[in-house]
């Protein structure tokens, strides 16, 4: 362990702003991509179902 306490860990020796903003934005970016991919999967499936329903009501 490179730190003596939890507070020490979060302080990052005075570099907290830099370390946590870089790590935070990276984590948020990666998570955001996973979430947006899941949402687009759901949207595509809903779109296919809608189209099939429309095709059937016309035939």
């Amino acid at each position: 362990m490179a730190f003596t306490s939890v507070a020490d860990f979060f302080a990052m020796g005075g570099h907290a702003v830099y370390v946590w903003s870089a790590w935070g934005l990276t984590t948020a970016g990666l998570m955001g991509l996973v979430i947006s991919t899941r949402l687009s999967r759901r949207a595509v499936e809903a779109d296919i179902r809608r189209r099939v329903r429309r095709e059937r009501s016309h035939s």
Partner: peptide
């Protein structure tokens, strides 16, 4: 948390 701090850059190197 476990890697040692850099002797010149301190903890900012964890970026």
């Amino acid at each position: 948390a476990f890697a040692p701090a850099d002797y010149q850059q301190g903890n900012s190197f964890r970026i």
